[in-house]
Amino acid sequence: MSSQYPLILKSISKTLPNGRELFADISLSLSSGEFVSIQGESGIGKSTLLNLAAGLDTSSKGEVIVAGQSLAGLSETELTGVRGRNIGFVFQAFHVLPFLNLIQNVSLPAILTGNTRDLALHKAADLLNKVGLGDRTQSLVSELSGGELQRVAIARALVHSPTLILADEPTGNLDPSTSSEVMELLTNTVKSTDAAMILVTHSAIDAASADRRLIMTATGMRDLDG
């Protein structure tokens, strides 16, 4: 299902099992190719917001629409399908499988979304090339630095041509110099596709590269640029 809005959040609220309201009435629409950053204090609910957007968690109120499809009422199997087809993830801790080589790691989402093994490997090789690791497709994870690992994660997030990229503190484990390299690579690579991206970050520098900068507070979410 295609839509010009890869993600729409309609007045969503999240109340924790202990009754504490994490956030309330947050709305957000992302257009194709749009890059939004979200900043905020630790524990304010940024990662939870990403989990809601990915269908990994359910909102207490409101509606989440991914690629034109409302996640409300979908079964776990259907949610997994929506996530696999439409969303790419980049994590702070990279999460690259240590016993697979780089090309196998990157090709995983493509295989899971129904590509043949050969096509998935071909796409993975292309993306590894784009992130500057084209000559190391057969390397093992243990041979890579933190920056290189995140490049692998970026390639993996894009291999199945998702419409939405969710990046949760992608530079959180990297030094400043590597951080800026990775951020540049992430934004440029995502921009080269038509995918929208939400970047959750503590770094004002990283957030600055976004089209829209949002900040989450206890009272809700507002646009930093007015």
């Binding site: 997994t80 399908g81 016993f99 196998q104 295989i111 899971l112 979304t113 129904g114 043949t116």
Partner: peptide, 22 residues
């Protein structure tokens, strides 16, 4: 569609299992 996708996951199982074995 999602169920069909999983039918393509054969190579992943092989990779994961062989990786674990290694």
């Amino acid at each position: 569609a999602s169920l069909r996708q999983n039918d393509k996951s054969g190579p992943i199982w092989r990779w994961l299992f062989i990786g674990q074995l290694r």
